[in-house]
Amino acid sequence: MEDNQPVARELLALNHLKTGYAVGRKQIVITAAITATIYSGEFIAVLGPNGAGKSTLLKTILGHLKPLHGKIEWQNKPTDQMSARQMAGCMAAVLTDKIDDRYLTAYHVVSTGRYPYGSLTGKLTPYDRQTIDEAMTATGVETLASRKFYSLSDGEKQKTMIARAIAQQTPLICLDEPTAFIDSPGKVSLMRLLKKLTVEHQKSILLTTHDSELAMQFADKLWLLGNQDFQSGLPQTMIKEGHINRLFDQADVAFNPLTLRFESK
């Protein structure tokens, strides 16, 4: 529509990345060697059965786990040479971690998205406040600002954490199972919200999910993780080439490419 349609920039490159855990001197490799790139404005869904290493991959990209092999580069800069603060300027996170504190307000939670910037004391500037307000409005939680975070519903908590990620103003947002524990209409509106971020703000989204039908509907690209297996591509391609069936089909359940649903055989 616009003449100066932004050109997709390369943000994150995974180069033969193997992820997993190091237990003592032993390495437990969970994912296959992954080579993939994330461009700006891309909506990527990571799919895979339980235990395929979706969360491990996300945590490794976020720098919470060390890669067992291979490299991660942010715009040609190895991420293991970046400080936590530099990383926080590149990617925001929405995790499955529970927040136990009983006194934090939703507003305070969102405001921690501004911590990578700003002063030593964490005093918010007018620009910080404006950014926080806009982020909370974008996810529809602006009326919850003064509520205690623990008292919110799971869906409201998830939207608050997404507002925090938006307030962090990073090119990439990584989300670990954001649609878990949310009712079906909530799931759709959450995915639509994330899609909107990629279209209107050129943000890149990388999310893991078990809602594969929704993922195929909304994502620009799928990353499929299986047992020592990695495939990536457009959802239609992944379906057409039978990767979905290969990864997910079980003895009595199969993916139907025509209806885009899992059905019993």
Binding site: S83, R85, A93, L95, I99
Partner: peptide, 24 residues
């Protein structure tokens, strides 16, 4: 008193504190 900001970030747990840019 110089650690007010990281302490507040840690209320969200270690992983979130990290993602807010702190060396936890």
């Amino acid at each position: 008193l110089f650690f007010v900001k990281p302490l507040n970030a840690m209320l969200l747990g270690e992983s979130y504190a990290r993602s807010s840019g702190f060396n936890t």
